[in-house]
Nucleic acid binder design. Sequence first.
DNA 1: CTATTCACG
DNA 2: ACGTACGTGAATAGT
Length: 887
Amino acid sequence: MATSSPGGRSEETVRLLAIDGYSLMFRGYYAIPDMHGPSGPTNALFGFFRMLISAIGQFQPHYVAVALDHPSATFRDELYADYKGGRAATPDELRFQLEAVRGLLDALGIPSIEVPGYEADDVIATLTRMATDQQVPTEVVTGDRDILQLVHDPMVRVHLTVQGVSNLATMDEEAIRQKYGVDPNQYCDFAVLRGDKSDNLPGVRGIGAKTAANLLERYGNLDGILAQLPALSPRQRAALEEAAADLPLFRKLAQLDREVPLGRNLGELMLSTDVDLSKAERLFVESFGLRTVFESLRALFDSSEAVVAKVSNKLSGSTQRVDSLRQALNSGSSFVAAAARFDGEAGRVPPSALGFGSEVGVGDSTIWISAQPNTLDAEDAELLGEVSLVGIGLKELVRSLHILSPSALAPKELIDLGVLAYVLDASERRSDLREVAQLLEVDWVHEASTDLFDVSSDETAISSELGVIPKLLELALTRIEEEGVGRLANEIELPLVKVLTRMEIAGVAVDLDVLETIGSALASEAASSLEEIHALTSPGFNPNSPKQLGTVLFDELGLPHGRKTKTGYSTDARVLESLREHPLVSLVLRFRELDKLRSTFYEGLRGEIAEDGRIHATFNQTVARTGRISSEHPNLQNIPVRSGEGRQFRRVFVAPPGSLLVAADYSQIELRILAHLSQDPGLIQVLSSTGDVHSLVAASIYHVDPLTVSYEQRSVAKMVAYGLSYGMEAYGLATRLSIPNEEAEAILSAFFDAYPGLMSYRQEVVRQARELGYTTTLLGRRRYLPELRSSNRALRQGAERQAMNAPTQGLAADIFKMALVALDRELEGTGAQLVLQIHDEVVVEVPAPKADAIAGVVRETMVNVIELAVPLLVNVGVGTNWAEARE
DNA sequence: CTATTCACG
DNA sequence: ACGTACGTGAATAGT
């Protein structure tokens, strides 16, 4: 029979599989709960062999070697006494297994290699070098990031363990660039600059991963950076000069040795086909109790073809081959199932990882396309406008298709199972079909057969995953109807997937010149601020370290300390603010503010600008437990606005020539929602009037005429109004206003006297949540709060505050999402495009001549999206950049 | 990998 | 006596 070709490559290819034994065993030991066989603990062994078997199945290697760390001191210890120092001693339960693994490997005829004075990493580096010399590609499986420097050899692929013990991420050049922002040949210098905790490399003080990647991008490598010191910011220059003497040493430590004397040649690593399985069985099963491991080994050694045949049988009953998406569509179907599988970041899926392909099963009105990476061509991608996709990770998938074919339309409809699962239960992240199956109580192993030993390639793995989609879809839709959230799912969350996809693809234009101007001013101010601090302390002092700052402030200067954290005294802005009189403290506050703006917003935003000069963030629809959308890579929902200095960053977000930005936000939406939900007549009246809301509230708390409300009174009222939806108590109000507790209590009771409906609403929400186990929004969105019944008082009270907050924050999210869907529809055909969303604010890029007209449409659409007991109020502005559009 | 800090709504 | 305002994401330090 025809065997499948693992990884999509010809099975004729001769390959070496090099595995870092101990790093996988460490993983297994910490990730797998206790397991014991007749002679001792086995969790690390179990994890290691499971991975070994899976890797052999996946890569079908001719040569295999397991590299182990030799217990003796290494050349690195000779160079650097602190190397890997300070690490906890290996627990006995693990040590036992580390020693046992050699015997088990011997029984299987799999060579293990350890060389005195070297680490497993060096052994692997040498193995890959030997293989490459003979034009043999190597697959490396390890948990140790140091190995990534090998990826610059095109014959080497590295697979890292991620999340637990059975998942591997293939780190190719692109993946490394995305994760770390450096090329593989820069990884070593990157590790030196940033430091590496597991090897106890200190790195350069004050240079984190972000800065390290930035410097390497600009100057190529460590030597290049050191040659250009004068061109760097004073802060970076100082940091590098301080560390300069040590850097060559650290580089030697980080650099892997590819010339270790192994005393073996490649031929000796041939995977044996002649193994005495009965002897191995005695050892694995009788001595260690590893029966399931042994059974998979037996299957592996008996015949790898048998495993493939099993999977093929399973599929053949329901699938038929067609050559392209076009052909599939011709067979009369309107649905396509798809699943995005990717190792990199969301929204940055390399096209080769797409779950699309040519093996298709046709049934009912649904086409199921199985996965065969990279078979979808640009022409296929353009046909997607005619189909509905059903699957998971669809936003990411469509973004990748767009890269494949920029003219591709988004599919007609995106039915994302992850989003449906989120509607049912938002309490945890579910990023793949297996996790959705778990929520829906579908037996994954049975239904999708993706347990490790049935999977012989990516292709079969994804085909079997896709097969389970119809069942998951049906179950999810049934439960959604049962729970009364059909409208939430069908009219809000599902249509929103496409809206957010389009927003991500569009991105937002940025003005790099503005960003650089703001950034360089910040960098030099931060540098001089740090110099002033060092003049008062010592040159090595790092104000970003709470530990160092605590020592200086509270031990050396004897200043009074405030709250304690788990690890020491708190040094956050609130504590520091109370110690402001001390000159050092105010300098530190200033430095932290500047450095935060510099690192997070200047460096952060700069690193996210795509080749088209725009920033394409990822908008998560299934993360926030209240129903909100979140943003990452970068987070565009926390761009500064409260301080004038930070607000400048909003001038970076611009409309391209010929366009303008329209920004619109809901006023006091949560307070309006509270008025609606509580039906408090006084609050409804205030929010229905045209007067200043916070002044009117202040007037009724303080029993004064609205015209005579002072600025302070208004601020207090504003704070109470916001604190209200979070379940704030007197203590919280008192500390935030720095007033006595009694005064805060008086304010709160005046507030609840003025609006009695609020108090009864809060009590009712908590009561009902306790009874049901969850809160609901007006549209039925649930938030499960099991801790409402906890016997731990702190947990319970925390859950009560969450219960008070969830219906308001949740309904605000629902309303805002409805607005996004409605806006996207209203703006169709106008040339306008939504580009940003910030919880209650949208930014739209519009053709300049239509700006005012569209601003009007945006306001009307947002105002009319729902009818509450009080009107919704929307502020709209137009400008060439985001700051300007907000007035 | 976790804790701390701080930016936003 | 005990804890004390909800929800996010990013950068950094150091166990």
